[in-house]
Structures are given as structure tokens and as C-alpha cells.
């Protein structure tokens, strides 16, 4: 649905994006993460046809964003990282205004706006002035706005920023529902745990370069984290940890918080080795799990924290 090849954007001497290649399949939720100033917003603005790339190409639904700007805009719902408000419009009017701007037929606008208001739980605020809304409400309104023309692709730049936990959970559920409706969603956020839960694919960008793109499993492979295990044993864990540390396949085994954290040497995939060793040594194994890396950790491992 979204394809980017060799996308470059420079501002004078500053290179915001450098030969970015990316592919997002239809119906995916793609999490776009990176430090501040890494180039996430620039990429999203190019896709929303608001910025002209210096070089490279980007397609949405097969349409070149440079050449078919209007058609692309019909297919994209872009929510920027700030809320642009008209200080003299009411919530309903604001959405109706954008419904008209997206050329929805007149007879259909009010129904659509009402639906979108209900969807984003803003019905009770439809008569309030836009700039009198709280930050969280404005974010919801922003989301309502991008849904008003039923776009195929949603580009959401930090939609959960400034929201309370309940609203964040609601937005997460809403995005999952939108995915079920077949929307392709590109989302950036600094709350990585949320992205981890809802994204099919993740892209990590730093200093304008895409340093990783793939599924969470691919991140595990990339970081070699599938070879990390946590073992719980009956009795004190220290003797078991000492036993396992002596194995040539084990790089490290440490007892901590009533469990043993084991790091296997590179290339070791024999999970059964640990269980066998412990059982043969007469130690009862209470549990064995491969430790799942969190997106936060992956992000820290993959990026150096450098900004442009």
C-alpha cells in the first residue's frame, strides 16, 4: 500500500532523510519509531504530500505522491503531531468542514460526522468550540478528522501524545478496529509498549536512515535475543546457576529474583539442553521461558540516541 524508494529530503545542509526505502503492506499497522529529529515526521509529511522530497519516490496505493497529489490526498488521512484548530468553529462544524473539503456529498456529511463523533466518543462535545477542548479531546478530534473521508491509509504522527491512560487504551483499541476494517496505518509514537502491542511491523529510523524494518520476531533475530532464557527451579537458584554457567554452550547464567537468567552462546538454539542438564542434576525445573525482548530494549539496542 505504501512504497518508498530512495527517499531523500534535505533542508539546506541538513539531511533529514537519506535514501529511505520502505514497504508497508495493505492492512498493516506499521509503527515508526526513532529519536526526536530522526526523520519520522518528515517521512510522514512527504507521504501526506505536504513536503516535496529532494530525491526518491513514494507511492500510496500505487499513486506517486509527487505526481498525483490530489488523488493521494483522497486516500490518506494525515494526523500531524500538532492540532490545528479554527478558534471559531464548533466540533461538529469542524468535522463537517473537513468532510466538505474532502468532497463528501452534502447529503452524506452530517451522517458521517455523527458516526465519526460516536466512534471517537466525542458526541457529547459536538457543540463545543474546538479550541475550548482539552488536549486529549483535541487529539480525539484530530483522529475523528482523519476518519471523516474514510481513507485507505492513515498516517498518524504521535496520536497518543498528551492523552490520559484510558484515552490511550481507547485509541489503541480504535486503531485495532480500523485495522480490522482494512485500513493501512502508519503510526509514530514514543510510547513504544503500545506500538509493540498493536503493530505488525516496526521501522526504526535514526539520523534520516532506516536502520531496521520488520516484525517483532525479526527484531529478536536481529538482536540475537531468542537465545535468552529464564528458568525457575525449586529451591535456591544459585547452585543451578553455577551448574549452568559451566556449560560450554552457555555464555552467562545469573541468579536473580528467584530465577536464573541464561544467555546462550551465538548459534545455540537447543532449548532442551538446559532442561536436560538441570533434570539430570536432580534439580526440579518449575518453569522455562524464552525471554521476549521489549520494543523499548530493541530501540535502545538499535539506536545510538543520535539526532540530526
Amino acid at each position: 500500500m505504501i512504497k518508498i524508494t530512495g527517499l531523500t529530503k534535505t533542508y539546506g545542509r541538513l539531511t533529514a532523510l537519506e535514501s529511505l526505502d520502505l514497504h508497508i503492506a495493505s492492512g498493516d499497522i506499521f509503527g515508526f519509531i526513532g529519536p526526536n529529529g530522526a526523520g519520522k515526521t518528515t517521512t510522514m509529511r512527504v507521504l501526506a504530500t505536504l513536503l516535496e522530497p529532494t530525491a526518491g519516490q513514494a507511492w500510496i496505493d500505487g499513486l506517486d505522491v509527487r505526481r498525483h497529489g490530489r488523488e493521494v490526498r483522497r486516500r490518506v488521512g494525515y494526523m500531524p503531531d500538532f492540532m490545528g484548530v479554527y478558534d471559531d468553529l464548533k466540533v461538529f462544524e469542524y468535522l463537517e468542514f473537513f468532510a466538505a473539503a474532502f468532497e463528501l456529498p452534502r447529503g452524506q456529511r452530517r451522517k458521517t460526522v455523527s458516526d465519526v463523533l460516536e466512534l471517537t466518543d466525542l458526541t457529547g462535545k459536538s457543540d463545543a468550540l474546538v479550541d475550548s477542548l482539552s488536549r486529549g479531546m483535541q487529539q480525539r478530534l484530530g483522529l475523528a478528522r482523519v476518519l471523516v473521508h474514510d481513507p485507505k491509509v492513515l498516517i498518524l504522527d504521535e496520536p497518543a501524545s498528551g492523552l490520559d491512560p484510558r484515552a490511550r487504551i481507547e485509541i489503541r483499541e480504535l486503531l485495532k478496529e480500523l485495522k480490522r476494517m482494512g485500513k493501512t496505518i502508519m503510526i509514530s509514537s514514543h510510547i513504544l509498549s503500545e506500538l509493540e502491542e498493536m503493530c505488525d511491523h516496526v521501522g526504526i529510523i535514526e539520523k534520516g536512515r532506516l536502520i531496521f524494518a520488520g516484525t517483532m520476531d525479526q527484531i529478536h533475530e536481529r538482536l540475537g535475543l531468542s537465545s535468552r532464557l529464564i528458568v525457575r527451579v525449586a529451591g535456591p537458584p544459585e547452585p543451578a546457576a553455577a551448574l549452568l554457567a559451566g556449560l560450554p554452550q552457555v555464555e552467562a547464567a545469573k541468579a536473580a529474583e528467584g530465577a536464573i537468567r541464561i544467555t546462550l552462546r551465538a548459534g545455540q538454539k537447543d532449548d532442551g539442553l538446559i532442561a536436560r542438564t538441570l533434570v539430570m542434576a536432580g534439580i526440579d525445573v518449575m518453569g522455562l521461558a524464552s525471554e521476549r525482548i521489549r520494543l523499548d530494549d530493541a530501540f535502545l539496542s538499535l539506536t545510538a540516541g543520535a539526532v540530526q
Partner: peptide, 10 residues
């Protein structure tokens, strides 16, 4: 900051 929103429409 409403200008980009307007320009993002067709």
C-alpha cells in the same frame, strides 16, 4: 496550524 490540514485535503 490549520494550514497543513487544509492542504492535506484534495
Amino acid at each position: 496550524r490549520a494550514w497543513p490540514l487544509l492542504l492535506a485535503t484534495p
